[in-house]
Design a protein around this nucleic acid. Sequence first.
DNA 1: TCAATAAGCTGGCTCAAGCCTGTTGACTGC
DNA 2: GCAGTCAACAGGCTTGAGCCAGCTTATTGA
Lengths: 266, 266
Amino acid sequence: MVYPARVNEHAAVDPAGILPSRRIARDLRQAIEAGELAAGQRLPSERELAARYGTARNTAREAIRLLAAAGLVDVEHGRGVFVHRPAPLLRLGSDRYSRCYRGAGLSPFLLECAKQGMTGRFEVLSIERGRPPEKVADELGVPAGQESVLIRENVFWAGTSPVHRVTTWIPWTIAGGTGLLEAEIPHPYGIHGILEDRGHVMTRQRETVTARMPTTQEEGHLQIRAGVAVLEVWHTSIDQHGIAYELTRFVMRSDLTGLHYDIPVE
Amino acid sequence: MVYPARVNEHAAVDPAGILPSRRIARDLRQAIEAGELAAGQRLPSERELAARYGTARNTAREAIRLLAAAGLVDVEHGRGVFVHRPAPLLRLGSDRYSRCYRGAGLSPFLLECAKQGMTGRFEVLSIERGRPPEKVADELGVPAGQESVLIRENVFWAGTSPVHRVTTWIPWTIAGGTGLLEAEIPHPYGIHGILEDRGHVMTRQRETVTARMPTTQEEGHLQIRAGVAVLEVWHTSIDQHGIAYELTRFVMRSDLTGLHYDIPVE
DNA sequence: TCAATAAGCTGGCTCAAGCCTGTTGACTGC
DNA sequence: GCAGTCAACAGGCTTGAGCCAGCTTATTGA
């Protein structure tokens, strides 16, 4: 890329009326989008950018910050700033509860990981009887003030990265006294196998999808870098009688995962 | 909220080992989450925070920046910093192409706006014959290098806010010579009415959903403030013969819109 | 040969100061 | 009564300096 001649010192804006930090960011952005700086390549250091543009280091730093917040660039302490290398997305499919995966031995999540050449696994964080949030109580038709639900908390990993944080609520009237209390689900078809044995066959699913920035906790749990949003998915399982009998919230890193729906138009 | 006693000057970290900017941010965050600072309420000014914590103004500023990037706070030039007041989300439903809305006179988007007490409308930015991006050409089965598609570009508004930026591609072999070239679609059932007349009845839809930070352009188009992601939805319409005949990309502000799917489990 | 060390790079954070632009409300004068 | 003006205060951006912490590599010494 080409750097500008040093302009007059202390000038807040250059002749084109652009603020210095924006100008540096714009130039770098263009270089990235034009492919002059390839994915994974190192950008000039903050001190070098500052010198080339005749600005203070803080100004070059501000430019980098803008690019990082936009997710264009990955900053690594002590190493440098690198053009972001997008990772292939794992796709959570709408067919993940389909019976067609029965007997395959692999859950849809693990299948998808395998497809992307990664090793998937999940970790049980906690299983307990507890009180549902109001929203969950409403949807499941259980009392909010009591320990009316089984709560399972999981983390899904793809390779060495945590990608989903998952919380599941099931009415205690359904889950009580079943294998749902164990970390290892004692049923060949997993959680939903047990729920079917209790008389609830998933006939419909309702899902809402929103995106937002992670909370401080989620940032830690999912090892999210700055400028990465999370997808929040609320899934409700509806049985053959129209009853909502299970509810799951997924918090997903948007840099590593996406959603896929393949559905009939009614 | 309670402010700390001024600690020794020039200390990089306070006794608890927390950086000053993080400490200010943490205190403010806790005050917000505890409800001490209610939604819409003004935070202390940067200069005031700096004085109370015995830091430089830039440090208080950094704290505010952290909160703004997390979407907890809205910064208004000249006015102050305010606790973010979440707006009700417009939900784009998976049933939006359903025939059940036929004859209602309102499109699903306008219905959803009305439900939230807002006035919805949309604006046609451009309609032209053009070249599809490779991804689109692949999916629609048209040549990538030629002007093989009709491209329509729209913006959807809810009240005074732009919420969706929408691009639609339709093979020219289908769209050519139809009312799809007009801004006002001359068909009571809209675009999909015309496509049905050409022999394509939507039988399935495929959608992929991802989240990311907006590009500079999108930030402008959608009037997005810092710390707000966009949802990117790629929709493919599949007809009764399994042919993909229409493709739409939605770029949606995640602070004002979400998605909703209500689907059978197959 | 190999491990410990140190130099020299990277970004991370802060300071104190200055000048800019946008907003508001009180004051002024018609 | 009302419009124009202006001061006070808000955030926006920059400077140039300093020190800290993480990474890499070349050097050193056992």
